[in-house]
């Protein structure tokens, strides 16, 4: 099940390792500081949502606001409680901190901007509003977050080990392509749970939607992206293998092709 192209493409890692090392220290994840996230929907939250979020996400959170029509990726439909960027296992609801983080950080490569024009309190106030759109938060609770252990030191060996996992054990290339360009054999037919076409992420761009730090990448393939074809590989990998795969995925970034960043 291994495409021949792979064999001719050994190495190359050293050039890109420098880039990934830069990323490791570069962007620290913006997790909730001491923000107080209300448990009840407040007037403040409703107003903030209506003013800033509903044009895309819709009055009732169905992702069908007036601006959404010609947009791809579509603004999230909150009614199913399917959130992509989480610290919780596959299928689980997100934690409040997960939602807070996405609102603050935004989603690169989409129209979802980092909402830093809002105050911390305003960003926190919309969280109960988003949750109120889905019955899922009434019947289920988020599972505990996956603990990301200490990162093992990136080296030639961890990258090589990760490459093996990417190409042979878990066959990430079927969707993401051998070079990580999001053009694998199964890429064209992918759609999300809402029936919209979706592209496997192009790792060479380096602008990860869920954040560029190594623990972000570790979490993405460990938790999966709910509501999308991107599965969780939690059952398949040990902690060490996850770091190796993370290092390999980060080594696929091609800084020379993305000069703006």
């Amino acid at each position: 099940m291994k495409p021949k192209v792979l064999l001719s493409r050994v190495g190359l890692w050293s050039a890109t390792a420098a880039a990934s090392a830069a990323l490791l220290i570069g962007i620290a994840p913006m997790t909730a500081k001491a923000v107080n996230i209300p448990t009840e929907v407040t007037e403040d939250g409703k107003n903030t949502y209506k003013k800033y979020c509903s044009p895309c996400h819709g009055e009732e959170g169905k992702g069908d606001g007036p601006l959404a029509r010609s947009m791809l990726p579509k603004p999230r439909d909150f009614t199913r409680g399917a959130y992509k960027f989480r610290t919780t296992p596959s299928g689980s609801l997100p934690t409040d901190d997960d939602i807070y983080r996405t609102i603050s950080y935004g989603v690169p490569n989409s129209t979802m901007i980092p909402w830093d024009i809002l105050t911390d309190a305003q960003r926190a106030s919309v969280i109960p509003v988003l949750k109120s759109f889905s019955e899922a938060f009434g019947v289920r609770k988020p599972d505990p977050s996956i603990s990301v252990g200490l990162e093992i030191r990136p080296s030639e060996k961890t990258v090589a080990e990760g490459k093996k996992i990417y190409e042979e054990k878990l066959e990430c290339w079927k969707c993401h392509g051998v070079e990580g360009r999001g053009d694998g054999p199964s890429a064209a037919e992918q759609e999300d749970d809402f029936g919209f076409p979706i592209k496997p992420f192009d790792f060479t761009t380096g602008k990860f939607k869920g954040g560029n730090s190594s623990s972000d990448v570790y979490l993405r393939f460990t938790t999966g992206l709910n509501g999308t074809p991107m599965p969780s590989f939690a059952k398949e990998l040990t902690d060490e293998q996850r770091w190796c795969l993370t290092h390999y995925v980060l080594s696929l970034i091609k800084p020379e092709e993305n000069k703006e960043k």
Binding site: M1, L170, D193, N226, E236
Partner: peptide, 27 residues
């Protein structure tokens, strides 16, 4: 099968899941 499958559900009342599985995996 000796290749990757994904097991994907979109259930609402039961927690959904989407898991990548390889040969002989049992979920």
């Amino acid at each position: 099968d000796e290749e990757l499958h994904t097991v994907h559900t979109c259930s609402v009342k039961n927690q959904p899941f989407n898991l990548g599985t390889t040969y002989k995996q049992r979920i």
